[in-house]
Write a protein that binds this DNA or RNA. Structure first.
Lengths: 356, 356
DNA sequence: CTGAAAGCGCTTACAG
DNA sequence: CTGAAAGCGCTTACAG
């Protein structure tokens, strides 16, 4: 590939001049000279070496996004938001899937650091034990010191996220909406409570119950993973228990969708016998049958704002932390409760099926 | 951030020696010296500058994956496969979402080129008019010449993809499976036929019909987008038409899922009144109610193999093109056809609802 | 086994 | 308006 030296030679100017033209520097160059350089660059199919430029500036226009799992639609949509904003500013996005492994997360950040990435954005929340990893804060500290931006889009161990969503308030609103429909026995699929974000949502559930004057019953809470399978298993757990319930509120949409499917295969009518609600409003939430009632998080905007925050840091502007609103979206998976609630033990799968 | 110069100074050795130790070069260094350098590196929290190294090697351990849309689960799973393989080899993955825009795709490739990325992997298929863009082949040519790898995972204008899946055969197998169940009137949701991959799948549909001795009827083919919404609209189109059908075969899962939902909301029983089949077997295909019959593509493996192919090119090994198998997966959305097929015009929505 | 020096491709004071 | 030169942080022949 042609270098600036070759462009300069072909144009008959110094590399300094050639550089000033091709890098669109704000520096006077005569029109005739400029033309000759541009012609030479075109003729040689010149594309500047981003590494050389980055070495000089000790920064490269790349932003890394750390996600838990890229196939989780939550993260896919956040990444999409980051990409939308980043592309518009000429930045490239590196997506790093940590698989919720602290070791892996840390080694990604190290790689990003070694590459002098301009920013690293953590899309997912942290695990509850930050002591797990001593390397990560070291890398982040070094990056910050070098002027790179570090942004968190979800709760973590080091204080408030720069761009946040009120998880607790969101869940509490959904609980309120279910209570409004007439539900009193609301089960909660909590997700992995080792994750900060899951804990906030669990807190929101308690808060919602409290605000409605309803008692908290540990038997109605099922700790799960954050995926579809976890939701299906939680339904089994709830049905095997003795505590009746008329609604299931899940800590994310994937759990709710899993619950929906298991309920359907058991012949339990949704929302006739049980109402189901999710959280996040990922794209597929509106694609299920029945479509899923959920709490909408502005995921795309979350990503977009995260990048804009990073841009502020990079430009030495004073960035302001942002708090994004949530919104309850009622679709077809929720309705008033039935006269007789789905029960547990004495009314196991068979009975339930009859109920439907 | 500390540079190799500082590490060398602290260790009391030359930068050459320091470099040999920290870069794990295969070069003799006395154990004592090595120890001192390592200690110094640790003390200074030294992380090598990937840009400087990349400038020297004129290559950086980054592989770019060009997708049509990162929130499409098809691409998310392919990217995941690339990441799995790349991470294991110390490469970072840059995901670039072209939004099916040739301009945007080209500018991403230019960026990757400017960054001296080691490889670019095209996950999606090309648009049918390659002349649309003259820049892209130029960039790819330059990258290839510089020793970078270029890999295609889907059909495009420039010959056979390096890693491929038999789209036509896959669809034909699904048609065969539906015929086997007793269907004779099989509609096809074709996707955007400006995409090579969609055309291959349409060809597979024709081929499947031919092999079963069934006539091709243009009225049963609906050209659509490649998303959920397109599937829902296609159902409307088919029901508004006069041609009866007992099964819908879709060119991808998202279309089939959209069809499923629209059918459910119209009260049409699936699979009782209409069978529905998808293509790809993305994760959510098994999550719908009823779960979706589909053709499984090894998406993760597709990505993984794509990266391995790139690695072969980079290591100057002779890479071999790979052809991945497809597999029909019958779940709950397909069954033998009803005695009386769902019809079109004279049996519009109302009639259909009664049928269910 | 160790080190001095050149050079990867660029940008930017500095001098004219 | 133009150019010569230094330097970003590394690796690697080359010499010892």
């Amino acid at each position: 590939m042609a270098s600036i030296t070759e462009v300069a030679r072909l144009a008959g100017v110094s590399v300094a001049t050639a550089s000033r033209v091709v890098s669109e520097a704000d520096y006077p160059v005569s029109a005739a000279t400029r033309e000759r350089v541009l012609d030479a660059a075109r003729a040689l199919d010149y594309v500047p070496n981003a590494l050389a430029r980055g070495l000089l500036k000790s920064r490269i226009p790349v932003v890394g996004v750390i996600v838990h799992d890229i196939t989780d639609p939550y993260f896919a949509e956040v990444v999409r938001g980051v990409e939308d904003a980043a592309t518009a500013s000429g930045y490239l996005v590196i997506t790093c899937s940590s698989e919720r492994d602290a070791e892996r997360e840390s080694s990604y950040v190290r790689l990003l650091r070694s590459m002098r990435a301009a920013a690293v954005i953590f899309a997912g929340s942290g695990l509850d034990d930050p002591a797990l990893n001593e390397e990560l804060p070291k890398h982040l500290g070094a990056m910050r010191e070098a002027g790179a931006a570090v942004v968190h889009l979800s709760p973590h161990a080091f204080g408030e996220p720069e761009i946040s969503v009120d998880n607790a308030r969101g869940i509490a609103s959904m609980v309120a909406a279910l209570v409004e429909l007439g539900h009193r026995d609301i089960a909660f699929l909590a997700g992995p409570t080792s994750l900060y974000v899951a804990r906030e949502r669990l807190a929101g559930y308690r808060q919602g119950l409290e605000e409605a004057g309803l008692p908290f019953d540990e038997r109605l809470v099922v700790r799960t993973t954050f995926d579809h399978e976890g939701g299906a298993q939680a339904v089994d757990t709830l049905l095997a228990g003795e505590r009746p319930f008329t609604a299931i509120c899940a800590a994310n949409d994937l759990l709710a969708l899993g619950a929906l499917q298991r309920l359907a295969s058991l012949g339990v009518d949704v929302p006739g016998a049980v109402s189901v609600a999710g959280f996040d409003d990922v794209r597929i939430a509106s694609m299920s049958a029945p479509s899923l009632s959920t709490v909408r998080l502005p995921l795309n905007e979350l990503g977009r704002r995260g990048f804009e925050y990073a841009l502020d840091v990079l430009a030495d502007r004073e960035p302001s932390t942002v708090h994004l609103p949530t919104e309850v979206v009622l679709r077809d998976s929720t309705s008033p409760p039935p006269a007789v609630p789905v029960t547990g033990r004495q009314g196991t799968e068979r009975t339930v099926a009859t109920t439907a």
